[in-house]
Computed example of a mutant assay.
Amino acid sequence: MRAVVDKDACIGCGLCIATEPEVFEMDDDGKAVSVADTTEENKDSVEACIEGCPTEAIHSEM
């Protein structure tokens, strides 16, 4: 599974980066971007990012 960030919806709040810094980073525009696949070890925290995103900008793809 890979988390995908909709850059048009992202407000750059940083919640996902604070929750799972191995998967999410900020780009040069101050928006979150997914930089790694979801693993069994970080699956729960990535799902928390998806559910907790205040603008629902994160979703998952297989």
Rank of each mutant, 00 (worst) to 15 (best):
V35Q: 13
T55A: 02
M62H: 10
D29K: 06
K43F: 06
P21L: 05
C53V: 06
V46I: 13
V5Q: 00
C10T: 07
A48G: 00
T38V: 15
A32W: 03
E25S: 10
M1D: 09
C13S: 12
M62L: 14
M62K: 14
E61K: 03
L15T: 13
C13I: 01
S45Q: 02
D28C: 01
C13G: 08
G52R: 02
A57L: 09
E40P: 12
T19G: 02
I50P: 10
R2M: 13
C53M: 05
D27R: 08
G12C: 10
K31L: 15
D6R: 08
A9W: 09
A18R: 15
V5C: 07
E56S: 14
H59C: 06
M1S: 13
T39C: 10
S34M: 00
T19P: 05
A32C: 05
C13V: 02
V46R: 04
M1W: 06
A3Q: 01
V23S: 11
L15M: 15
I50M: 07
A9G: 00
M26T: 11
S34D: 00
K7H: 13
G14I: 01
V33Y: 00
E51G: 10
V35C: 03
I17S: 04
G14Y: 04
C49Q: 03
V5H: 10
G52Y: 12
M62Q: 14
C53P: 00
S34C: 14
S45K: 15
K31P: 09
A32F: 07
D37F: 11
E22W: 02
S60R: 13
G30R: 00
E61L: 06
T38G: 05
M1Q: 13
A36Q: 07
E47N: 05
E47F: 03
K43H: 07
D27P: 10
N42D: 09
D8P: 01
G14T: 11
T39P: 01
E25Y: 06
K43N: 11
V33S: 09
A3W: 10
V4Y: 04
L15E: 11
S45Y: 05
R2I: 14
A18D: 15
C13W: 02
E51P: 04
K31D: 04
E25A: 12
G52Q: 03
E25I: 10
